[in-house]
Amino acid sequence: MEKIVWAVDGSFFGQRVSGIQRYSIELLSALDAIVPPGLVEVVTPSGVRAPVYENIRTVTFGTRKGLAWQQRDYPAYLKQRGAKGLATCNVIPVFGFRGIAVVHDVCYRARPDFYTDLRGRISAAWHRLQYRRIAGVAEHIITVSEFSKSEITRYYGVAPEKISVVYNAWQQMQRIAPDEQIFKKEPRLRRGEYYFSMANLLKNKNFPWVLRAARNKPDAVFAIAGGGSLEEEAKRLGLADLPNVVYLGYVSDGEAKALMHHCKAFLFPTLYEGFGIPPLEAVACGAPRIYVSDTPCMREVYGDCAGYIDLKTNNGYVDDVTPPKCDAAQLLARYSWKKSARALLDVLNQASN
């Protein structure tokens, strides 16, 4: 029988690291420790450097960059090499792909109301095309939660047995040293006395809820990390003049770890997620409690270890959220990149056979 080689689209190594790229990076690193040599390789565009692995081969191929490389050079490599593709970031070549794809969520399909400006509509159209192609041509689909699996089945008619769940994890936080200097830079933040959230302008992150919570609880400090025009958005919402809100801008990983460790609670009032990793990272960093939205995805991932915000009735009242009775060790034990890598390797082996 012909030996199957799985060639990973490694273009994400040249992208800014967000949750999707982090998943790919950590999963491959853990997979390298258990995969037999010759089964998996990573192919990248020229100028994009992948890590040096023990058992995973790295290859540079093609002359294009960005999306053009992903859509033209990557499938050309698969054909030339006779390999199957492993695409871990929601996107496959529209033509010339056979293999396995990771779909982290189908938010663009499930919540089109989040994407109403021109850029959002274009992005939504592109991703919905990708979801349809993946559903139609991928030999198998990996996603990050049972909730996301059910959404793929619901919207794209993919049989459940064609989808495997490979969870996110948190061990990357162990490699980060906390940077306590953030408290000197922001003297309004007293350890153990502030609520912390990480925000952006994506509608699913529900940044306005945090502002309303700050307005409704003026005696507490709310620290908000994140780039973009958060303060401008606060002005647009009529919630700019809140003296108890501290806008931190972009923070380093070390600063984020310190902020998570010393916060009173970590807030994550998301409207839609495929997994929702920040609260898990917060628990790993020592946050005493996490408050998340009351959605099926959050219930699946966090169980009894979170306080749940009913966004249908709670318009920004932290005190109305029941504190969780969290066994942090039990929660963290559910998720590891080693477990996820073993699950991925099982999928690769089954698909190879």
Rank of each mutant, 00 (worst) to 15 (best):
S229F: 13
S336W: 08
V301E: 02
N204T: 03
F12D: 00
A225I: 10
F196G: 05
N90P: 00
L28I: 01
Q80W: 06
G47R: 05
T44G: 06
G238E: 02
V144G: 09
D219E: 15
L230T: 13
E146Q: 10
K264G: 00
I122H: 04
Q80H: 07
L345C: 09
V251D: 00
E273D: 01
E151S: 09
V210Y: 14
N314G: 02
A110T: 03
C305Q: 13
V52E: 13
Y23P: 02
D117K: 00
K185D: 04
S293L: 09
E161N: 15
A7L: 07
T88G: 03
V43P: 08
A287F: 05
P218F: 11
F61M: 06
V52H: 13
K325I: 09
R119P: 00
R175Q: 13
V158W: 05
E146N: 12
L211G: 08
M173K: 10
C305D: 06
K65E: 01
E273T: 08
A76T: 08
K205D: 00
C263G: 11
A265R: 11
M198S: 12
V245Y: 05
A199E: 04
M298T: 07
L67N: 07
M173I: 10
L67Q: 14
T58H: 04
K205W: 02
I152T: 07
I122M: 11
Y302C: 12
K264P: 06
S340L: 08
S145H: 07
I142Y: 07
K162R: 15
A135K: 02
D117W: 08
R22A: 05
T44K: 09
L39H: 03
Y194W: 14
L248Q: 10
A328N: 12
I122L: 15
V43E: 03
V94K: 10
A351D: 14
K3I: 04
P37M: 03
V347L: 08
Y131I: 09
R22Y: 03
G227V: 06
A225F: 05
